[in-house]
Design a protein around this nucleic acid. Structure first.
Lengths: 190, 190, 190, 190
DNA sequence: AATGAATGAGCGTTCATTCAT
DNA sequence: TATGAATGAACGCTCATTCAT
């Protein structure tokens, strides 16, 4: 009996279909309302409530499952940035990518804003992500591209705050949301 | 029948007392949970639920009433800043003050993040506030202390995002939250 | 705002009617199934679920309200027994009465079997009841009508056990359930 | 298709292992909570829920399987008692043994309190048990050691009631639970 | 104006049971 | 035979809101 996983493997065909349906409906709910009412999500997905709970025994597990894709892509991007030469460019690329993902995925923002992980694989990816970002931050700091007093956790908070800034309000920010990441990058320079 | 006001005048003594009690309890709830359950708030305040609804017919009116004090103080601070000479110092003072207020008052943050106002007086104060901030921004821009593309609404978003960054997560930021306003101020420079 | 009470006073007419309906339905449920599902009870009583929770915020409060009548009558009977002269007769009368009440009221049995009370007035009546029974037990013990090692709590357990014995099973015991109280009284003699 | 049995024979090795695991977990659940939630029991036992249902198609069959061991031991003890000479000693030994088993095994108590059996072999053992106890009761009655009006079914009820008395409440009775069997034995004398 | 009783929509969660693999 | 996915009834509980007193 495996622990709850945000990214399960070896699902039966019908189980995978149900899971995908649930995630699809859940994603819409979270983006529109910030809530994840399992009852309605199950109903809308055309799936029994018990099935929904089998797949996602807790709201956190659902949030982490929703965020998992973006988390994976983020980790990929960070790995790429680490492999690059220019520390400042790598740092800027990482911040920009993270900002974009956070703006596009409310579940990712909620997960990172919380800062705690219950599913083993989400925690693992997040741990690796933070470790890699730490490397990028060190290099950026040494190359004089980053304020000394900002660490990984500060960046996590600031990025979540910025995506909230871009997303919040009656009208979400439009195309020009890149402006904000410029403000952030400017502010992070010593 | 007067419109709902966030800062009513001419209340009977007992009505004023009830209102104050409700606000006190509501403030604690909002700060601790981000929620404003009128039933429990009325019960804890020792006030009938009907009375609570008479004072605050909607959650928004309660949020605006909660934020009204901070909104007033903010407006005061901005008026002071306008009266000063140095545009850059005035701008910095305004941003810093706003940041502090937002970090300290979850209702103010919720209200400004939403960006809409239902009570006439709250809307009035906010309108004046935004107008005055706009003046400060113009001056700062002209004096070369502020990026050209940032307007009042951007600043509103960014400030809300920054206070969210400082507040969010399992552990709210401690004493050193001023660090973040430095990042913001740095980022806002051209 | 008074604490939850098992025997409230000064209810509005409609509130009293709802309360009575709820208790009536609840009593039937408890007698037949030993359960107290508030949802179904409210529905059967023709009362909103919220109303049910207003009257009985917890299952315990409902059990105690159900048992309150019997508890009162029991206390009355014990007071009478205390006023009598013959310690043995008083003791026997008390045990018999308690047994009868327990056999007739499953909620009373459940409450006394648990031995804990959450409503202030139920706790008060129970406390007085136990104190008075203790007096009866002392007298009975002194007059040689009761084993030395049996105290109030033992009697509570034994009476609950006996009423369970008379009640349990596919067919509850019929008219001749008095036989069992004779066994109990016989067993309690030194 | 054989009837469900509380004590099946000729199980495959893995089936027997699964059955044992289920019983072990179920016993703990029943002792601690009085409930037998098949889903959780199967999960905790590391066995598929379908397998659990194959072994125990109903809650009763599970209860009977749990009680089977104790039922066997009880029957053994009664056979021994029948073989003895002194009818009163035999009777007392039987009552005491039964009481001890009931106090120690919540499933046995639940089964005997219900008084109905669905598995053929449980019914058979219980039938033999009751018949043998009946013999002991007759002898005891004849030798003047037992009230005339108490029959096997009364004893079943009373024993269940007494073990409930010893077990119930916030604090189960401690070491001195033998006291209660003395009360019972005393009460059963003419 | 104040009170608080009533309502019911809605969400969280458990668990017995069936059935496809 | 074993597995575990799926289902849905049932229940617990909260809270926004209305309305009679």
């Amino acid at each position: 009996m495996p622990e709850t996983l945000a990214r399960p493997t070896g699902l039966r065909a019908d189980a995978a279909r149900n899971r995908a349906r649930l995630l699809k409906v859940a994603r819409r709910h979270h983006a529109q309302t910030g809530q994840l009412p399992l009852n309605s999500i199950a109903a809308e997905a055309g799936v029994g409530i018990g099935t929904a709970y089998r797949h996602f025994p807790s709201q956190e597990s659902l949030v982490e499952a929703l965020a998992m894709d973006a988390l994976d892509r983020l980790l990929d991007a960070v790995k790429h940035a680490i492999a690059a030469n220019d520390p400042e460019r790598a740092f800027r690329a990482m911040v920009t990518t993270a900002y974009e993902h956070l703006c596009d995925d409310t579940a990712l923002t909620a997960l990172l804003a919380g800062g705690t992980f219950t599913c083993a694989d989400a925690a693992a990816v997040a741990g690796e992500l933070f470790a890699d970002v730490d490397i990028l931050l060190r290099r950026a700091r040494e190359s004089g591209a980053l304020r000394a007093e900002i660490d990984v956790d500060d960046l996590r908070r600031l990025l979540c705050g910025f995506s909230a800034a871009a997303t919040a309000g009656p009208v979400p920010l439009g195309k020009d949301r890149e402006r904000y990441v410029e403000v952030l990058l400017g502010g992070l320079r010593p």
